[in-house]
Design a binder for these strands. Structure first.
Lengths: 189, 189
DNA sequence: CAAATTATGGACCATTCGGTCCATAATAGC
DNA sequence: GCTATTATGGACCGAATGGTCCATAATTTG
């Protein structure tokens, strides 16, 4: 019934996500974004609505791809090993590396952008639930203290995960940062 | 030998800090900032150099006032009580409240702005040292495990402090967040 | 093939961006 | 009071901002 779009919607969305992720929302110009992904303004506004709409779509996309992959990985193998694996991934990041996109959005826009805040919270909750599952399974397997509140421990893990990313972003205390994983795991047992 | 400036340098700097703190660097326009603090462009460029220079000055100012006050408070009273106090301050924050300015700068600019990253790291190190002092004093007083590496524990505390701020920014898990303080303190003992 | 519908390229828009410049005002030392 | 020096207000700048509009191209349905 009409002309077909010539670009791949998800491919463009992934490109936008990368740019917002690296540079943040405000610092990423629409013109720059469009030339990067090779899209005209008409096509962009026709398909995505606005820059802010695209941020929200990028955030959703991040949750259902990148974050979901991390969540899936938390279900693989021994709960204890999976948790350690998830932290080692973060700890191996280079100084100026990207932090989780949820964190970028939470800090840049969480204070005044309710639509962003709702999505960030949903993403964090999904991650927290995945950690909680891992902890419960670990408790059942005798890896962690069975009398502890799994909800509190999973929130504790998420907080540590994001806190370590902040320290990493500032290139701070690389050695102590890596050693803190032992402290974190000890708190579970 | 020349005309005197009519504005208070530190007062303007504090005003700029508040705006960068709330809104971030990119989203804070220079014109808006100047009208907010009531300063002309000439005076601004004469005294501060550029928007970016003012960000750096704001960051320095933050460290030597706000952060330093937090550090000073860590030295008051029982080490254990002081640490708990510092976390309760963060945990009492409202959903959309400000997070530490160091974190705002680390996330928005830490990835590509070396001058900012250096300052953020210095601030985080000062805070980490203050926690380390508190832990050492607590160890000497028998409040914490004496055989633990104070450096690792203090880094662990800083990570938790910033991680909890991220969760707070997203208005996530208020109850579990507050309960996690017990888990954190347990890791010290 | 015709009509209806959607996609595309790019010109165009007002506004805002950070920053410069200059004429004028105010102050200190002589 | 004169001179040197700095501060101030505001006009001005080119570039960039997010967003709109329209003529044209491509496609499906009838």
């Amino acid at each position: 019934m009409a002309r077909l779009r010539e670009f791949d919607y998800e491919q463009v969305l992934d490109g936008a996500l990368q740019l917002f992720w690296r540079g943040g929302y405000e610092a990423t110009s629409l013109d720059g974004l469009l030339s990067e992904v090779g899209l005209s303004k008409s096509s962009f506004y026709g398909a995505f609505g606005s820059k802010h709409d695209m941020l929200l779509a990028s955030l959703d996309r991040y949750i259902e791809t990148v974050l979901q992959a991390n969540i899936d990985d938390l279900r693989r193998g021994s709960p204890r090993a999976a948790i350690i694996r998830s932290f080692e991934k973060i700890l191996g990041f280079q100084p100026t590396s990207k932090t989780c996109f949820l964190q970028v959005c939470a800090i840049e826009r969480g204070g005044h952008d309710q639509l962003v805040r709702m999505r960030v919270r949903r993403g964090l909750e999904l991650l927290e639930e995945a950690y909680r599952d891992a902890i419960v399974r670990g408790q059942e397997a005798g890896q962690f203290a069975a009398d502890a509140d799994a909800r509190v421990l999973s929130t504790f893990l998420v907080a540590n995960l994001y806190g370590l990313q902040v320290l990493g972003r500032a290139n701070m205390a690389g050695d102590a940062r890596k050693k803190s994983l032992a402290t974190i795991m000890k708190a579970l047992a």
